[in-house]
């Protein structure tokens, strides 16, 4: 029993040859869904015009440029020591020099070259692990779901930085081990988020209808489950990029990050904390962390307002 209005042809995209079955109504149903998906994607584009997002993106662009062009932009070598220790900010040393006479400006710029790729690496690997396990847990369900969720429970029993500290201390201080530690503590968040978005799709009518139309589990996963998890994953990954920068700096503040003389922002703050009168040694690396993390957080928030249905109603 269908009303003629619903049966009326929809102005959708051209027919997809992979559409299962020859039934024109089945084809139309799937088209309509894809069309709806396209509408949603279009609405995301408005995000880039918000003033706060423009500021955040420009900040990030600036930092990415700084990271890429560090050797050209930085006036001095980040690790070369000089006799001019604790020089206050001047035209020669914009951000002053530290306890070993190294130029703070050059070290802050080179710090971006260290922190940004590390943050991207952490998020990429944790996202991959979390997505895989989250998809398996949510889609297969039962025992797999139970096992994965109970494992994530263990990780959530610790505040993140405490567990990261324990892992990094056990493996020994180095950039590689800090990255491993931060991946280990952050994948469960992704797994949880992906799983819950999979579950919300799994119970939906349109997944049931596509199964009735003969769509196999692999295709359903690729076509219905994964695209619906992309939104939450993108939001989380953006926020986690900032979190990764923050946690890396915390680990190296604890002496568990990249080894000296690497220009890591957290370690620079730790070095500057020994003498308050030399404020510039820790002030500028701190501002660097603040601006990078803030930019990621603003971006993540704006994306969430658009992509997360709970926030889309304007509740956020």
């Amino acid at each position: 029993m269908t009303s003629p209005r619903i049966d009326a042809p929809l102005p959708g995209p051209p027919t997809d040859p992979t559409t299962p079955g020859d039934d024109p109504r089945a084809r139309r149903l799937l088209q309509r869904r894809r069309w709806a998906g396209r509408l949603r994607v279009r609405s995301v584009s408005g995000v880039w015009r918000q003033p706060s997002v423009v500021v955040a993106l420009s900040l990030l662009a600036l930092w990415v440029l700084a990271a890429l062009l560090a050797p050209l932009v930085a006036p001095y070598d980040p690790v070369t020591q000089s006799a001019q220790i604790y020089a206050s900010p001047s035209s020669q040393h914009w951000f002053g020099t530290d306890e070993l006479g190294r130029d703070v400006f050059s070290r802050v710029i080179h710090g971006a070259r260290l922190s940004l790729p590390v943050a991207v690496a952490i998020v990429a690997v944790a996202l991959a692990i979390g997505t895989l396990l989250g998809l398996l847990a949510g889609y297969i369900g039962r025992a797999v779901d139970e096992i994965v969720m109970r494992i994530t429970d263990l990780f959530f029993a610790f505040p993140q930085i405490i567990l990261a500290m324990a892992v990094a201390a056990a493996f020994g201080p180095s950039t590689r081990n800090a990255v491993i530690a931060l991946i280990i503590v952050s994948w469960p968040t992704y797994a949880r988020v992906i799983r819950s978005s999979v579950l919300s799709v799994r119970g939906s009518d349109y997944l049931a209808s596509s199964r009735l139309l003969g769509v196999g589990p692999v295709q359903a996963l690729r076509r219905d489950v994964v695209p619906n998890s992309v939104g939450p994953a993108v939001v989380l990954a953006t926020l986690e990029l900032g979190n990764a920068v923050l946690m890396l700096s915390a680990l190296s503040f604890l002496g568990l990050g990249p080894r000296p003389p690497a220009p890591e922002w957290g370690a620079m703050i730790a070095a500057g904390s020994r003498d308050l009168s030399m404020w510039w040694v820790s002030a500028f690396p701190g501002l660097a962390i603040l601006t990078v993390v803030l930019a990621f957080n603003i971006l993540g928030d704006a994306l969430r307002d658009r992509l997360d249905p709970r926030y889309a109603r304007g509740l956020s």
Partner: peptide
Amino acid sequence: SLLGLSTPPFWLALVALYVFFY
């Protein structure tokens, strides 16, 4: 709240100490 979430805790402590003590 975004600023608070984006600030490294140890740096905020340092800034507070610098301003209110130093």
